[in-house]
């Protein structure tokens, strides 16, 4: 069933993931400005998630259908959060 598909270098991906984890912990320990820290650590989290999805979950070898199954729920998540913002966050 699997077979033909190429395997990325999983160990290298893992090194990247661990390195990024260490980086985000280090950044949170140095007290930069709060908003800068938040932006950086969540950017790192997104990069890690994308690394896992593309390589370990083989998203980069998948078709449009599978991509949309990953992306459409994310869009809905953004819509839901944005609409809830005035009701929940600013009360």
């Amino acid at each position: 069933m699997a077979g033909e598909k190429a395997h990325p270098n999983y160990v290298a991906v893992w090194f990247w993931l661990v390195g990024l984890m260490v980086a985000s912990v280090a950044i949170s320990l140095f007290h930069f400005s709060e908003s800068a820290t938040v932006v950086v650590i969540f950017t790192i989290a997104v990069v890690k998630a994308v690394l896992v999805a593309l390589n370990f979950m083989h998203l980069r070898f998948e078709r449009l259908l599978i991509y949309s199954l990953a992306i459409v729920p994310l869009l809905l998540f953004f819509i839901l959060t944005a609409v809830l913002f005035p009701d929940i966050a600013s009360h």
């Binding site: 839901l80 609409v83 009701d87 929940i88």
Partner: peptide
Amino acid sequence: GHPLLWQHLFWF
């Protein structure tokens, strides 16, 4: 907490 949160989650 926010009672409205439930309504949003429910109706979403």
